[in-house]
Structures are given as structure tokens and as C-alpha cells.
């Protein structure tokens, strides 16, 4: 009688589709919620969005 398949460490790692995905480093994750950096990003993101909204309202490229 055969029991449940025993996976090797490499098989275990590759079982999940996440194995093949790009992962952020610790520093990238830190920046996402770093207050000083996010205050700067807040300003820049707003400017980017205002630009897109303005372009779309004017119907111009």
C-alpha cells in the first residue's frame, strides 16, 4: 500500500505558484509605509493623477 506522496524540499517550494513570482526586498516593503517617504510620494502621486485627469478632461494627449 502506498501512503501520501512525500515531497522533497525543492518540490515543496515549487508547489506554490508564488515560487515563480517576483518578491519585494525588505527595503522596498519598508519604503511602502515609511512616513517621510510616503509624504513625498503623496505629493508626487497627486501631481501625476491631476495631470492624467487634466489630460482626459481636455481630451488631449
Amino acid at each position: 500500500m502506498t501512503g501520501p506522496k512525500v515531497y522533497s524540499p525543492v518540490e515543496k517550494a515549487q508547489l506554490r505558484s508564488a515560487y515563480y513570482a517576483t518578491r519585494p526586498t525588505g527595503f522596498t516593503r519598508y519604503l511602502r509605509t515609511s512616513l517621510p517617504w510616503q509624504v513625498i510620494r503623496f505629493v508626487l502621486l497627486n501631481l501625476k493623477m491631476i495631470r492624467i485627469i487634466g489630460m482626459s478632461h481636455r481630451g488631449k494627449r
Binding site: 511602502r32 510620494r41 502621486l45
Partner: peptide, 17 residues
């Protein structure tokens, strides 16, 4: 699409927005 205006990032600032 126009790559100059197609943009994405994830962060806390997005949540505030």
C-alpha cells in the same frame, strides 16, 4: 498605451489618497 503616463506603485500614500 503612452508609457509616460501609464504608471503604478503601491504604498501608504495611495491609501491616504
Amino acid at each position: 498605451r503612452d508609457i509616460r503616463h501609464t504608471f503604478g506603485e503601491i504604498g501608504l500614500a495611495g491609501h491616504w489618497i
